[in-house]
Amino acid sequence: MSRRVALVTDSTAMLPPDVVAARDIIVVPLQVVIGATSYDEGVDPEATPETIAAALREWTPVSTSRPAPSVFLDAYRRAHDAGAEAVLSVHLSSQVSGTYESAQLAAREAPLPVLTVDTLQLGVATGFAVLTAADLLDAGKPVEEAKGAALARAGATTSLFYVDTLEYLRRGGRIGAAAAVLGSALAVKPLLTLREGRIAPLEKVRTTARALSRLEELAVTAAEDRQVDVGVAHLAGADRAQALAERLGTRLEANLDGRDVIVGEVGAVIGAHVGPGMVAVVVSPR
């Protein structure tokens, strides 16, 4: 343990293994169940985005589950044993997963103080909040300040995404208000966002091309004249995501100040709920 405060997150934050290692971050895996077999995301080689996309297309039953509190408690104990004096545990939205609740339950039994953060975000957006916390902790700032910075970063972040169909979100019970607004209008291409941690409808468009164009425009609008980090995520949509990232990199060149637009494929857990073809854009003010 290179710092006095251990930093914990979950596998949905889309942090690459090299970043996790370099920033001394502990990642607790969520589980994805394909058919009758459960896998740890980011740990078991079978739980890949490609496997999930194929299973969904073949109508193989796919579900996800949060880590048990005991898994978090084990992570907190290991941090304590490695010399940490406190833990900051930063996670995906409590409105779409019980992961944050598991972290809270484990914190009550931990052998050291644990501060938990509900980012009310998903994927890359949670990852940006984690990295902001890492920056402050590495600079020797108090854990309370790092928690506040992570919450502020997540709260200022705009998350937008397109799905080919609402069917996968409907199956997983994750569309909330989107179900009421869009109903059975599955012929349209829905654009969605996160509001107060819940997936909510944003716009309805008629074609995929128009949807991706709108994602681009909305992302540029969200950036305003601020310095931002931008991430583009996808499931089985690498070409779409890369093309969108290149356009955003050009249009937001001044906002990025030399930083790249991050492009990555979502993990198995988020992928199980959004389905193949999903493309998301995250705009996060620095």
Results as ranks from 00 to 15, higher is better:
Val117Ile: 03
Thr99Ile: 02
Lys147Trp: 06
Leu136Asn: 03
Leu169Gly: 08
Leu166Ile: 07
Phe128Gln: 14
Ser184Gln: 14
Ser93Asp: 03
Ser89Glu: 12
Glu196Ala: 12
Arg174Ile: 04
Ala185Glu: 10
Arg108Ser: 11
Ala185Tyr: 10
Ala103Val: 11
Thr165Asn: 07
Val96Lys: 04
Ala185Met: 15
Leu192Ile: 08
Leu115Asn: 01
Ala154Lys: 01
Gln104Leu: 15
Arg108Trp: 00
Ser102Tyr: 02
Glu101Gly: 13
Ala134Phe: 06
Leu192Arg: 12
Pro113Phe: 06
Val96Asn: 07
Gly123Met: 13
Leu122Asn: 06
Leu122Gly: 00
Pro190Met: 05
Leu92Pro: 11
Leu112Gly: 02
Thr119Trp: 03
Leu194Ser: 04
Lys141Glu: 15
Asp138His: 14
Glu144Arg: 13
Phe161Arg: 03
Gly148Trp: 00
Ala125Gln: 04
Ile175Met: 00
Gly148Ala: 10
Ser93Asn: 12
Ala129Tyr: 00
Leu194Asp: 03
Ala125Leu: 04
Ala150Thr: 01
Leu88Gly: 11
Ser159Thr: 13
Leu194Pro: 02
Ala110Glu: 04
Tyr168Ile: 05
Ser89Asn: 02
Ala185Asn: 12
Gln121Ser: 13
Asp164Phe: 10
Ala185Phe: 09
Glu109Asp: 12
Ala106Gln: 01
Ala177Asp: 15
Gln121Asn: 15
Thr165Ala: 09
Val90Ile: 15
Arg170Trp: 12
Gly98Ile: 08
Glu196His: 13
Val124Ile: 14
Pro111Val: 03
Leu137Ile: 15
Leu120Ile: 08
Tyr162Asp: 06
Thr126Ile: 10
Arg108His: 07
Pro142Val: 12
Leu136Val: 01
Glu101Thr: 15
Pro113Thr: 03
Ala129Trp: 02
Tyr162Thr: 07
Gly123Arg: 09
Phe161Ile: 00
Lys189Leu: 03
Ala103Thr: 03
Ser184Ile: 11
Leu112Asp: 02
Val143Cys: 05
Ala134Ser: 14
Leu92Ser: 00
